[in-house]
Amino acid sequence: MSDYNFAYLDEQTKRMIRRALLKALAIPGYQVPFASREMPMPYGWGTGGVQVSAATLTPEDTFKVIDQGADDTTNAISIRKFFEKTANVGTSEKTEEATIIQTRHRIPETELQEGQILVYQVPIPEPLRFLEPRETETRRMHALEDYGLMHVKLYEDIARHGAIATAYAYPVMVQDRYVMDPSPIPKFDNPKMEMAAIQLFGAGREQRIYALPPYTKVVSLDFEDHPFDPSKAEHPCALCGAEDSYLDEVITDDQGTRMYVCSDTDYCESRRATGHIGTEGTQPEEVFA
């Protein structure tokens, strides 16, 4: 890969992305158009996140990649290897060691700190897209702060189901101005978005970048009589016993027996390493022995 520039992208492209990132931080929640490049991985597989990471990485960074909360899913591994090769950066699976974390569909359970950067891969950045397919229309709605359509949709959910029937990519209002798509994270993660770290969102195919500076006000849309509910499966993790983490449901036999385990693999392993063991768990050293 020595023929390629540091972090793959040419400096011209990085400059364009960097300008978009700064505008995105200056206008939290606003989707900045950028001239997304064709990357050597398919659109829809994190090209937006990869371009944002490439424009943001420094040689001193420690890079972590998660997909569905896990460091060892195939797409996470593939992206981590890409930057190991092209930027020669250090990598880690430990949330607290990483300075840049690229994620698909989760926010780590461990609270992020100042100095950390969370890069989200975003498939459809426009929160209004499923209500109005036309970009020309949705752009006008954001300009006029006209979010009536979204409230009508949420209200119709309540009328039909008695609750807001959105479980992930649950829309948020940023700093009382822009309605924003938090990417397809479960709504359980929404409250974590008011955090100390910088959050950057990249949508490659849709050519949009947006951002949240630390401590930005992020409110999940709701109604007074139907407040936002960031619920999750009501079980402890079977491996580490955590009751505060988002859980994956795993089918363990032909009878359809289920168990619930942390989706954040680093969080789960760290807990077990410090002696928190669930009903089905062991300390991680023993697992790999």
Binding site: R104, Y168, P184, I185, R205
Partner: peptide, 27 residues
Amino acid sequence: QGTGFLEHIKLPHYVDFQSELELIRKL
């Protein structure tokens, strides 16, 4: 663009699916 986005649904989506499962069970 089309093939990338179409084929990306092969990637794991179990976190989102889990949140839908929870919601449907609750409803």
